[in-house]
Write a protein that binds this DNA or RNA. Structure first.
Lengths: 240, 240
DNA sequence: TTCTTGGTGTGATTTTTATCACACATAATG
DNA sequence: CATTATGTGTGATAAAAATCACACCAAGAA
């Protein structure tokens, strides 16, 4: 796993923790499922007895509040594994998973995985690593979104996006994916207008710019890091 | 483990996921360490190669921001296990752990635990359960602190405190522990004054009251649940 | 082409939250 | 006892963020 570990700005897959052997075992027990853009892979409160491996596409893990606002907790993409090792037979998802574009996933039954874990000690250990990383991602976002206001939250989100979608160019780091202000707002936990105003300000200060096609270019990463008091977490943690 | 699972308002210990056999194995590899109130068990950025079992006392996991404000992520107490299964040899803590009162912990060396995990398949599985629960706690707090403003954040924190410290009485749920407004503010991610004003309001609406000794009594749990759109998570998750 | 849709950019206003300032408790200490 | 701490309660004000309103733009559909 991990074809491009040495390269700058190459998105980490959270399955990079698995050895090729383990990953092959996982592949053997997964079956394929296609899911169209804007469809839900699972819903908040559904029975949680599967894990999903994203073959290609994009899945957003979201929490809807009562007023209809969405908070996007993670964006998973090619090579990522989604789900939890449920603590008992009757676990439920506490979030929803929505395809942000046409996606193909490999479905892994909880039970099949459990068998694998019992049979292969190293699979268990690798899964513990994976779980540890996923938890670190959550905690680091928690910190970023709570500690330095909405501006710090936006700046940290831009840094995370640069790790997940960035490509180094002469201009700076180009985010290969387009994000609307609304989408950014859902990642940051703020309103569309606030994101727009903060982005305008960042443009004015030459921290970022936008290409004609609407993609964002980060010209001054250091400024963003300063704004959220970045702790330079490894890229497997600092992601959306 | 889990002497009082059926009882109302009896704090869950996060080690309740372990079987007695596993727990005995853990006890066999831990050694004791005493730590005085206000001392740190570990600091942000220290090498993370140990886990800690709280024998008795109280440990707060905190994140300090640059302006000196503290965010309290968890409060661990008797029977709780603290730490992470590090993903490699060179992990570091991303938070600090401070004794909120005189505390005795059992120290578990990462390496000893790893040996245990390799030798006993069920230890691995139980640790995965434990990790899963810890992650769920983090995610549910994330939701609570982000989604319904500072008032929702305070109300959810009061509910969590009721699960961790509550005792049922005729008056309502008494929190057996005293918390200053500042301590609550650190749990909620707001200022001392804002907590004070929100608590005053809740008192006026007869949702809570305070005893002479300063402890809080929750008279109207339903009101608090409404304020944060509580999803009635199990008590092992809904804790501070 | 025109119309619709989804997105951007920005003023004006309101609401929420933080900050400052200080009076007043109460407990701990010499 | 007086004297420090530490904590509470609240007004006044400032700052941050959300909300409302609307002009404008670009892409795609009719």
């Amino acid at each position: 796993m991990g074809a491009c570990k040495e390269q700058n700005y190459c998105a980490y897959q959270n399955t990079d923790v698995f050895t090729d052997e383990t990953f092959q075992l996982l592949k053997d027990i997964m079956y394929s499922q296609k899911i169209e853009k804007d469809q839900y892979l699972f819903l908040d409160d559904d029975t949680a007895n599967k894990l999903y491996y994203v073959k290609h596409g994009q899945i957003k893990i979201t929490k809807m509040n009562e007023e209809g606002k969405e908070l996007v907790l993670y964006i998973f993409q090619d090579g990522d594994l989604i789900g939890e090792l449920a603590n008992s037979g009757e676990a439920r998802y506490s979030f929803s998973a929505k395809a942000a574009r046409d996606t193909e996933v490999g479905v892994i039954q909880q039970k099949d995985l459990e068998t694998l874990i019992w049979q292969h000690g190293n699979v268990a250990v690798e899964f513990m690593r994976w779980m540890g990383i996923m938890h670190k991602i959550t905690r680091s976002k928690f910190r970023d979104l709570m500690l330095y206001g909405k501006n710090g939250a936006l700046c940290s989100t831009l840094i995370r996006l640069s790790n997940s979608y960035g490509r180094m160019t002469a201009d700076g780091i180009v985010l290969s994916n387009k994000f609307t202000n609304t989408e950014l707002a859902e990642l940051v936990g703020t309103s569309r207008e606030t994101v727009n105003r903060m982005l305008s300000q960042l443009k004015k200060e030459n921290v970022i710019k936008t290409n004609k096609d609407g993609t964002i270019v980060i010209a001054d990463l250091a400024f963003l890091k300063e704004a959220c008091h970045c702790e330079d977490c490894p890229k497997e943690i600092c992601r959306v």
